Amino acid sequence: MTPREKLSLLNYEPPDLGFQVGLSSYLGIVISGLVASFGVAVDVATPTLLGIVPTVFTIVTVHGVVLAKRFSGVAERIGASRWLTLACFSPIVTHGAVLLADVLGALEVPSRLFVTSGVALVFTGVAAAALASMAGNRFVDAVTREDPETTWTWHSSRRWGTENGALVVGLSFVAMAIVLGFASRNWGGGLFWAFMGLFWLLPFLSDDDTWYADADRTSHLPDLRAHDVGIVTDRPQSRRLIPWDDVEDVRLTEDELILERRFLDVRCDRAEIDDPEAVLEGIERARARGTGRPPAPATVDERENGDDLRSRKRSLETS
């Protein structure tokens, strides 16, 4: 059973208060941001806009909370659809087009409109990301209400782990801030955000624990849960579902537990799993329940380990 098929069998309930506030706040930010950009474009006075924009945000947000109660299942439907999730980010296209036109020199944008569009883009992007995350979490919770077959902590066996990935993304944003700052002739702003970004990235450049006080260095690692609809990546603030249709094979090698996918495999360090064979059996049971196929034998894939593993087995048998 696919996640969407299982979702269609559920009885939808009105969204919880948290999602009502999140959805209404998102709509308030989107509409007030467009109003602010339009007002600046038609040269409305700044004091007038400072009175109009907060009023628009308040009205939309309050009415949004009331109206959101009537749309049962809206969070689960958004979270289940990639297109609806992407649609949450569509309002940033308008603000991004204004910034891009100025940076490329296609249009001379007044500095006031440039700043307003930039601020609106940031706030809209953050609100859209928060809404998409909330919807995704509620969708995953809706289709995985039963207890998982097995659970384990994801210690990635890849050379580039989560912290290094965050470092690359962070440095990319710093570089973007510098480029946009210089391109918009706002040198001070570009350098300011670049230094702020570098300061935020300092913990990733350090190997000691002083940046994290007495926190557990493994507390940020996600848990993986095997359900009949797929594998859930469970992080403290977000949950993501990998459907069984996206998993081509599950293998246990000498060093890794591997969930093969079309693009990015999920690779877990076998040494960090308490009972890897039991975890593999649980995964196969959940996969069999979800796909209707009998579970595959839970064996170590010798092809991944080559002749070295086979030779060691022979030496053990002869000794």
Rank of each mutant, 00 (worst) to 15 (best):
S37K: 07
A183I: 00
Q20I: 01
R293V: 07
A166N: 10
R82D: 05
A101Q: 08
L9R: 12
D269G: 04
V103D: 04
A175C: 14
L257P: 03
T299A: 09
V56P: 05
D308Y: 15
L9A: 14
F123E: 11
P3H: 01
A132D: 02
G18P: 04
V169Q: 14
V21I: 05
I92W: 11
G161S: 09
G105L: 10
F89C: 08
S156F: 00
L67W: 11
A213F: 14
L107C: 13
P14D: 05
R235Q: 12
P295L: 12
A142R: 08
E317M: 10
L221F: 03
I242W: 03
N305M: 11
R4H: 14
A128S: 12
L198M: 08
E108V: 12
G306K: 15
V250A: 03
E163L: 11
F173S: 01
A41M: 09
S184C: 14
W187S: 07
L264A: 12
R82S: 09
L171A: 09
F71S: 05
E317Y: 15
A45W: 06
Y26V: 00
W193G: 00
W200P: 07
D255N: 13
L280C: 06
L99V: 04
D141T: 08
N305E: 06
A296K: 15
L252G: 04
T162R: 07
G73S: 06
V42H: 08
L221S: 03
G189R: 05
F263M: 14
L34K: 06
T253G: 01
L50H: 07
G79V: 00
F38N: 06
L180E: 05
L10M: 13
G79P: 00
R314Q: 07
